[in-house]
Amino acid sequence: MTLSIEHLAAGYGNRLVLSDISIPTIKDGAFVGLIGPNASGKSTLFKTLAGLIPARGGTIHLKDEDITHMRRRDRSKRVGYMPQAFGCNALLTVFESVLLALKQTTGWRVGSDNLDQVSDTLAALGLAQLSNRGIGDLSGGQAQMVAVAQTLVRAPEVILLDEPTSALDLHHQLSIMTSIKTEVRRHQPVVIAALHDLNLAAKFCDRLILLRDGKILADGTPETILAMSEIGETYKVETDLERTKRGVFYVDARLSA
């Protein structure tokens, strides 16, 4: 067993956002899509898993180890989290910004192995051209790719990506999802990505978890989840699940009459 969550609760101040979240074992090398409307608790779930906000109840197990109350610094070595917000005006190059992500967990001195890790990650994500560019000069999509690189370079066991494709055009959406999928095959981490695009989720994920109002509504293969009537109810639309000639599922959605 790899990552499993039982009866997890979390929130901010007096407000409980997540209550009784249980996610049965997610195996190594799984690519899980977390779907649900805005304010359904996706980001809160990620922050709780990453240790940025404390769990108010329940447990998180990673490889048979209870990490629910593990210190944030230690946990950040094992659980990589890419937050939604991005964009800054720092005078740092793309290479440096990925290097600094790596150096949070690997000691003070920059070794040649560190430089290898950074340049390999940049190459794998197709960011080599931008390596020496200032991060303040990047487009929104490029900045998002860099944020993904910052997460992947640390080779964590669990990778949490909060809307990795939200600022990207079609080409870059497919390219980043493919890169993540390749990473999953190479290093076998657990990947959970919060996605708004159900078709992208259908195309790349092995498993989908539907979140609404801080509760898990459904958990299963894309085929079963996307065919459920709950999808339409949750997003307040009408949906049909279709299948293309290539055998890929897609959700045909329209506003309810």
Binding site: R73, R75, L100, T105, A147
Partner: peptide
């Protein structure tokens, strides 16, 4: 401050990113 150079550099990426990278 030398001991804190990497967290401080991370802070230049913005608070959210720094926190996500494990900086308190």
């Amino acid at each position: 401050s030398l001991l804190r150079t990497w967290p401080m550099t991370a802070l230049r990426m913005g608070e959210a990113t720094a926190e996500s990278l494990g900086v308190d």
